[in-house]
Amino acid sequence: MCNMPITIYHNPKCGTSRNTLDLIRNSGAEPVIIEYLSQPPSKAELQKLIAAMCVPVREVMRQKESLYADLQLSDSKWSDDALIDFMLLHPILMNRPIVVSNLGTRLCRPSELVLDLLPDPQVGAFTKEDGEVVIDAMGQRVHPSV
Protein backbone atom coordinates (compact mmCIF):
# COMPACT_ATOMS: atom_id res chain seq x y z
CA MET A 1 0.00 0.00 0.00
CA CYS A 2 1.46 3.38 -0.94
CA ASN A 3 1.92 5.86 1.85
CA MET A 4 -0.03 8.83 0.50
CA PRO A 5 -0.67 11.78 2.79
CA ILE A 6 -4.06 12.26 4.40
CA THR A 7 -6.02 15.06 2.74
CA ILE A 8 -8.92 16.97 4.28
CA TYR A 9 -11.31 19.21 2.38
CA HIS A 10 -11.77 21.65 5.22
CA ASN A 11 -13.83 24.66 6.25
CA PRO A 12 -12.18 26.28 9.29
CA LYS A 13 -15.50 27.92 10.26
CA CYS A 14 -17.17 24.49 10.69
CA GLY A 15 -16.92 22.78 14.09
CA THR A 16 -17.23 19.29 12.58
CA SER A 17 -14.43 20.08 10.15
CA ARG A 18 -12.22 21.46 12.96
CA ASN A 19 -12.88 18.39 15.12
CA THR A 20 -12.03 16.10 12.20
CA LEU A 21 -8.78 17.95 11.54
CA ASP A 22 -7.89 17.74 15.23
CA LEU A 23 -8.61 13.99 15.30
CA ILE A 24 -6.27 13.52 12.32
CA ARG A 25 -3.57 15.47 14.14
CA ASN A 26 -4.26 13.51 17.35
CA SER A 27 -3.15 10.41 15.43
CA GLY A 28 0.24 12.04 14.84
CA ALA A 29 -0.44 12.81 11.18
CA GLU A 30 -0.28 16.25 9.58
CA PRO A 31 -2.72 16.26 6.68
CA VAL A 32 -2.78 18.21 3.46
CA ILE A 33 -5.46 20.82 4.13
CA ILE A 34 -7.56 22.05 1.24
CA GLU A 35 -9.78 24.95 2.22
CA TYR A 36 -12.30 24.12 -0.47
CA LEU A 37 -14.19 27.43 -0.19
CA SER A 38 -11.15 29.28 -1.53
CA GLN A 39 -9.62 26.31 -3.41
CA PRO A 40 -12.53 24.28 -4.79
CA PRO A 41 -11.64 20.98 -6.44
CA SER A 42 -11.84 20.68 -10.19
CA LYS A 43 -14.86 18.96 -11.67
CA ALA A 44 -12.79 15.81 -12.29
CA GLU A 45 -11.50 15.86 -8.69
CA LEU A 46 -14.99 16.28 -7.24
CA GLN A 47 -16.33 13.48 -9.43
CA LYS A 48 -13.46 11.26 -8.28
CA LEU A 49 -14.16 12.06 -4.60
CA ILE A 50 -17.86 11.26 -4.99
CA ALA A 51 -17.10 8.01 -6.82
CA ALA A 52 -14.57 7.00 -4.14
CA MET A 53 -17.16 7.60 -1.39
CA CYS A 54 -19.77 5.50 -3.27
CA VAL A 55 -22.52 7.94 -2.30
CA PRO A 56 -25.17 9.79 -4.31
CA VAL A 57 -24.17 13.31 -5.38
CA ARG A 58 -26.90 14.84 -3.22
CA GLU A 59 -25.28 13.30 -0.14
CA VAL A 60 -22.23 15.48 -0.78
CA MET A 61 -24.37 18.62 -0.84
CA ARG A 62 -25.27 20.80 2.13
CA GLN A 63 -29.01 20.48 1.76
CA LYS A 64 -29.63 22.71 4.80
CA GLU A 65 -27.68 25.54 3.16
CA SER A 66 -30.11 28.36 2.22
CA LEU A 67 -28.60 28.54 -1.26
CA TYR A 68 -29.69 24.92 -1.84
CA ALA A 69 -33.30 25.99 -1.31
CA ASP A 70 -32.86 29.28 -3.17
CA LEU A 71 -31.61 27.43 -6.26
CA GLN A 72 -34.38 24.82 -5.90
CA LEU A 73 -31.78 22.05 -5.99
CA SER A 74 -34.13 19.58 -4.33
CA ASP A 75 -36.04 19.50 -7.62
CA SER A 76 -35.49 16.14 -9.31
CA LYS A 77 -34.96 17.86 -12.65
CA TRP A 78 -31.26 18.41 -11.80
CA SER A 79 -28.87 15.75 -13.07
CA ASP A 80 -25.87 14.66 -11.00
CA ASP A 81 -23.66 16.52 -13.45
CA ALA A 82 -25.65 19.74 -12.95
CA LEU A 83 -25.51 19.34 -9.16
CA ILE A 84 -21.73 18.96 -9.35
CA ASP A 85 -21.57 22.12 -11.46
CA PHE A 86 -23.56 23.97 -8.77
CA MET A 87 -21.09 22.81 -6.09
CA LEU A 88 -18.19 24.05 -8.20
CA LEU A 89 -19.89 27.38 -8.81
CA HIS A 90 -20.93 27.70 -5.15
CA PRO A 91 -18.45 25.69 -3.01
CA ILE A 92 -20.51 26.45 0.13
CA LEU A 93 -22.90 23.78 -1.20
CA MET A 94 -20.22 21.11 -0.75
CA ASN A 95 -20.63 19.15 2.46
CA ARG A 96 -17.60 18.84 4.69
CA PRO A 97 -15.20 17.61 5.74
CA ILE A 98 -14.19 15.07 3.15
CA VAL A 99 -11.08 13.09 4.09
CA VAL A 100 -8.93 11.00 1.78
CA SER A 101 -6.35 8.50 3.06
CA ASN A 102 -4.80 5.17 2.10
CA LEU A 103 -7.78 3.58 3.87
CA GLY A 104 -10.50 5.30 1.86
CA THR A 105 -12.45 8.47 1.17
CA ARG A 106 -15.32 9.59 3.32
CA LEU A 107 -17.56 12.46 4.31
CA CYS A 108 -16.75 12.69 8.02
CA ARG A 109 -20.04 13.72 9.59
CA PRO A 110 -19.86 13.09 12.49
CA SER A 111 -16.16 13.78 12.90
CA GLU A 112 -15.48 10.40 14.55
CA LEU A 113 -15.95 8.72 11.17
CA VAL A 114 -12.42 9.86 10.32
CA LEU A 115 -11.04 7.31 12.81
CA ASP A 116 -11.70 4.55 10.27
CA LEU A 117 -9.43 6.36 7.79
CA LEU A 118 -6.46 6.83 10.11
CA PRO A 119 -3.66 4.25 9.97
CA ASP A 120 -2.22 5.17 13.34
CA PRO A 121 -3.93 4.95 16.72
CA GLN A 122 -4.78 8.11 18.58
CA VAL A 123 -1.85 9.33 20.68
CA GLY A 124 -3.93 10.78 23.51
CA ALA A 125 -7.35 11.71 24.76
CA PHE A 126 -9.61 13.76 22.51
CA THR A 127 -12.68 15.80 23.37
CA LYS A 128 -14.73 17.52 20.70
CA GLU A 129 -15.43 21.26 20.87
CA ASP A 130 -18.87 20.55 22.32
CA GLY A 131 -17.36 18.60 25.23
CA GLU A 132 -18.12 15.10 23.93
CA VAL A 133 -15.26 12.71 24.75
CA VAL A 134 -14.31 10.66 21.69
CA ILE A 135 -10.95 9.16 22.73
CA ASP A 136 -10.15 8.26 26.33
CA ALA A 137 -6.82 8.74 28.13
CA MET A 138 -5.66 5.31 26.87
CA GLY A 139 -6.16 6.41 23.25
CA GLN A 140 -9.26 4.20 22.79
CA ARG A 141 -12.58 5.13 21.22
CA VAL A 142 -15.27 5.91 23.75
CA HIS A 143 -18.05 5.17 21.22
CA PRO A 144 -16.65 2.37 19.03
CA SER A 145 -20.02 1.78 17.38
CA VAL A 146 -19.60 4.87 15.15
Results as ranks from 00 to 15, higher is better:
28 G>H: 10
72 Q>P: 00
31 P>H: 13
97 P>Y: 04
97 P>R: 00
42 S>T: 15
46 L>D: 01
22 D>E: 14
115 L>D: 03
111 S>T: 03
101 S>F: 05
65 E>L: 09
88 L>D: 13
137 A>N: 10
10 H>P: 09
27 S>Q: 09
120 D>W: 00
126 F>L: 13
113 L>P: 02
142 V>H: 01
64 K>R: 15
94 M>A: 05
4 M>N: 13
39 Q>F: 11
23 L>S: 08
127 T>F: 04
137 A>H: 08
101 S>P: 08
41 P>W: 06
130 D>N: 15
48 K>Q: 15
51 A>V: 06
128 K>M: 11
108 C>A: 14
67 L>R: 10
46 L>Y: 01
57 V>C: 14
36 Y>M: 06
80 D>G: 11
77 K>A: 14
1 M>G: 14
139 G>A: 11
34 I>C: 15
20 T>Q: 06
78 W>M: 07
72 Q>C: 13
102 N>W: 00
50 I>Q: 06
132 E>S: 07
134 V>N: 04
39 Q>L: 13
73 L>T: 01
61 M>K: 06
102 N>A: 14
91 P>C: 08
70 D>V: 03
72 Q>E: 12
109 R>Q: 14
38 S>Y: 00
123 V>Q: 15
14 C>V: 08
114 V>L: 07
1 M>F: 04
118 L>R: 03
140 Q>H: 12
45 E>D: 13
8 I>E: 04
26 N>A: 15
